[in-house]
């Protein structure tokens, strides 16, 4: 049995629909129209102990809903979920001792007092014994370089400093699983690097299983070998990142600036899109190589400028979204 087993989980929300404007707001005050939204549909996956999994998808795809179900905050409409032999929402108190959750957009630190005070409170919340607490705290302070910032009121910290404290706060009770919901949102390059390296380190040293959601593909590239791509509540891809990359490796992204109108049909052209001052074209260089392609179009139109980009993970995701029409 795997460490995390998720089987056929679905979650339906009832949301009220209303149009904008005061009149409609008043109208909906008396009579609400509801519609049912399936946030996640029939999701199944398995994660082994010590894995780092990137959980990605566009906004509103159901990422946060999944994280909330896995951390026991929400109960799914149907399906089962066993994590470390426990069902999160049934064995809540016991289960949450084993997990740490970082919501990148929400803080768990007390705003007006130093982070260390929050840590001390968490010690009691999680019932950590003194010796173990001091050891873990010292370790986290060192690894996340918190020594100078832990005594300052949290409101005076920069976003990057605060996020490092947040992560430390989520790990004080040495959880076996760490859920990171957009941990690098809004961080600068240095802070991102510190966070990533730290996650890597605790995964390696303490075998912490990490489930990470993000919009920053470089996070995924730096951390996760395996990704789960979700869109419109369904799992679209579950597997190695490298495999996905290989599949798209021959794609070239060509941005052409021109005033002329281009009509072209040729094998190997995956997509063509009109932009404000030209075209965005994706070609498969195995079928049509780049110079042939450029030759071909330069006969048809006057190219003012051209930019060629290799495949990167951001583009893969964009083309995957396109492929699945999400």
């Amino acid at each position: 049995m795997s460490f995390i087993e998720v089987n056929n989980i679905s979650k339906t929300f009832k949301v009220s629909v209303r149009q904008s404007g005061l009149k409609n707001a008043v109208k909906s005050f008396f009579k609400r129209n509801y519609k049912y939204v399936e946030a996640v549909k029939d999701i199944s996956f398995k994660v082994e102990k010590g894995e780092i999994v990137g959980y990605i998808g566009p906004n509103g795809a159901g990422k946060s809903t999944t994280i909330k179900i896995l951390s026991g905050i929400l109960i799914p409409s149907s399906g089962t979920c066993k994590i470390n032999k426990m069902t999160p929402w049934e064995h809540r108190k016991e289960y949450v001792k084993k997990i740490g959750v970082v919501f990148g957009q929400r803080s768990q630190l007390w705003w007006d007092i130093p982070a260390e005070d929050t840590f001390d409170l968490l010690k009691d919340v999680y019932d950590i014994n003194e010796e173990e607490y001091q050891k873990t705290k010292k370790d986290l302070i060192e690894k996340l370089n918190l020594k100078d910032i832990i005594h300052m009121p949290v409101r005076q910290l920069s976003l990057g400093q605060r996020m490092r404290c947040e992560i430390a706060a989520s790990l004080l009770h040495s959880p076996e699983i760490l859920f990171l919901d957009e941990p690098t949102i809004g961080l600068d390059a240095t802070s991102k690097k510190i966070v990533r390296e730290f996650v890597k380190k605790i995964n390696k040293e303490k075998k912490v299983t990490v489930i990470l959601t993000t919009h920053d593909m470089s996070d995924i590239e730096a951390l996760a070998k395996r990704i789960i791509l979700i869109g419109k509540g369904r799992i679209l891809y579950d597997g190695y990142l490298r495999k996905l990359k290989n599949k798209y490796d021959n794609n070239k992204y060509i941005n052409i600036i021109t005033n002329d109108k281009l009509t072209i049909k040729h094998k190997g052209i995956i997509s063509k899109e009109k932009t404000k001052d030209g075209y965005n074209i994706i070609i498969d260089s195995k079928i049509i190589n780049l110079s042939d392609f450029l030759n071909l179009i330069s006969k048809k139109i006057k190219i003012e400028d051209v930019e060629v980009e290799n495949e990167n993970i951001d583009n893969i995701i964009v083309s995957l979204y396109k492929e699945y029409e999400i």
Binding site: I73, R92, R106, Y126
Partner: peptide
């Protein structure tokens, strides 16, 4: 504010 979610992931 969504802070209630946070309470649900504490063993108390």
């Amino acid at each position: 504010k969504g802070d209630f979610d946070r309470l649900l992931i504490r063993p108390q």
